[in-house]
């Protein structure tokens, strides 16, 4: 069981690292949202799965409730994550920022 927990933790760490590196490396604001919004969500899913598995290990009513609460965080983030991403994109479009494209770089 511990091995599964460790695997999920390392996977979550890889996704979180990818999100942070992507925020620094990508060229403009719109493409930075891709790693920021979604790699972080998946990293959170992996880490929370590991935490819930580790909590449920010594089985009791209280640990079961805590594991369910941890999964409630995941459900909440999966519902609100796209909405937050869309709110930021909408603010950028209304402020009039142009997306970065390949052709503009060639000019």
């Amino acid at each position: 069981m511990n091995i599964i927990v460790i695997i999920f933790l390392v996977l979550g760490l890889i996704f979180f690292t990818g999100g942070s590196v992507g925020i620094i490396r990508f060229p403009d604001f719109y493409s930075r949202l891709h790693p920021a919004g979604k790699l972080d969500t998946t990293g959170l899913l992996m880490t929370m799965l590991a935490a819930a598995l580790y909590t449920i290990q010594d089985f009791s009513t209280e640990s079961l409730l805590t594991g369910l609460k941890i999964m409630l965080i995941v459900v909440f983030v999966f519902i609100t994550g796209p909405t937050a991403t869309h709110a930021i994109v909408d603010a950028g479009i209304r402020a009039g920022l142009r997306p970065w494209t390949k052709k503009e770089k060639a000019d």
Partner: peptide, 22 residues
């Protein structure tokens, strides 16, 4: 799709691979 974006992020020549468009 996550694995695809992860591959893009750590690729050394990422600027050649991506092509954002609407």
């Amino acid at each position: 799709a996550n694995i695809h974006v992860l591959y893009l992020t750590f690729h050394p020549r990422m600027m050649d691979l991506i092509d954002p468009e609407i």
